[in-house]
């Protein structure tokens, strides 16, 4: 079993892990010849099924295993992975390999940073002004080399403990099946949506749970999200004390691709979203979601991708996140071609 790769886009990978780790602490990672999958199935909350093409985050990718398609399944703790990637933000290069350290399997992240001049010359100026006669180093001697600022290499190695999973243990895990959505809509600015959602949740908590204290033990009113097929999205929350909502208009309801729909053109005619559209702008598809969970979901906004929300009325909400920035030179046609990250918010 061998796995080794260079990280091609550290920023994107780091933002992805940040978004994922707010939704769950452990991910099932499936690596094979074709793509990289991150799956998070928390006990409660939102499931993530992310499929990334290899070249969106990696390059010089080598994988080898006895399984079909050279598949390797790993169980990976997300916070340490994210932490490790933080070290790589200003790196010259970063690579990952699967190895063993003292008998424990680890993902070893090797980060190389070249510094032109180090910090120890930077303080020369400050210290010359420092006339402290008591300091040990009132007359500091500096190495000549320190001022020449040669190309110095700092290598940081971050070992993330992992578990290698057998093919059997992941066989039974399947993506949730959700009925065809009633409405699909491109979400507005996620940071705006997040700010307003968080505000609503806080207001609701403050007006229901006493003075808003100890709210974790009290049932928090759910946010109500609704979309129509005429470009509107409605966010609202209601408690005994208040009832607030925000409506976005002029959003896009993307056309469905007949090839993706069961029974093609005919299926599209019978599709729930077609019916909702026909019912006019006052026909909404509504889901209710825990505000705290929703806030975590919206943290995928940091990826800067396009997000399409699919509403299955009173049943489920699925977000399709399309990575936009995996290659700076990419155009829109590439974006939609890349497999989306899907977030399933199952509703109780």
């Amino acid at each position: 079993m061998r796995f080794k790769t260079s990280v091609r886009n550290i920023q994107t990978f780091s933002k992805l892990t940040a978004s994922l780790s707010s939704l769950g602490k452990v991910a099932w990672v499936r690596l094979d010849d074709d793509n990289v999958r991150f799956t998070i199935i928390p006990e409660t909350g939102t499931q993530v099924w992310a499929v990334l093409s290899i070249d969106s985050i990696f390059e010089d990718y080598t994988i080898q295993s006895a399984a079909q398609n050279n598949t390797i399944n790993l169980e990976l703790p997300l916070p340490p992975l994210h932490r490790a990637l933080k070290s790589a933000i200003n790196a010259t290069s970063a690579s990952i390999r699967l190895t063993k350290k003292d008998g424990v399997p680890v993902l070893s992240l090797t980060i190389i940073t070249n510094t032109i001049s180090s910090g120890n010359t930077a303080n020369g100026f400050l210290n010359s002004a420092n006339t402290d006669p008591f300091g040990d180093n009132a007359f500091r001697e500096e190495n000549l080399d320190a001022n020449m600022g040669g190309d110095r290499e700092t290598i940081v190695t971050q070992n993330i403990p992992i578990r290698v999973l057998t093919a059997d243990s992941v066989e039974g895990i399947h993506e949730p099946r959700v009925r065809e959505p009633d409405a699909h809509i491109v979400l507005p600015s996620l940071i705006q949506l997040k700010a307003i959602s968080d505000r609503f949740t806080k207001l609701a908590m403050a007006t229901t749970a006493g003075a808003g204290r100890g709210a974790s033990t009290v049932a928090v009113p759910k946010l109500e999200l609704a979309a129509n097929m005429h470009g509107s999205l409605k966010l609202s929350i209601s408690t005994d004390a208040l009832n607030i909502s925000s409506v976005w208009t002029g959003l896009t309801n993307p056309e469905l691709d007949p090839r993706q729909v069961e029974d093609g053109e005919d299926g599209l005619e019978d599709h729930p979203s077609t019916k909702l559209k026909a019912a006019g702008p006052d026909a909404w598809s509504t889901v209710r979601i825990d505000g705290r969970d929703w806030g975590k979901v919206l943290s995928v906004g940091r990826l800067g991708g396009r997000v399409i929300a699919c509403f299955a009325d009173e049943h489920a909400l699925i977000l399709y996140v399309y990575l936009s920035n995996y290659d700076d030179g990419s155009d829109d046609s590439v974006l939609t071609a890349s497999p989306p990250t899907k977030l399933y918010s199952q509703l109780s």
Binding site: P80, T115, R152, T154, N159
Partner: peptide, 20 residues
Amino acid sequence: SEILKQPLHTTIAVDTLEFG
């Protein structure tokens, strides 16, 4: 799964020239 809770093992290797 306790293994997954182990903290990161980090090594930073630098040139002695980084030092005064």
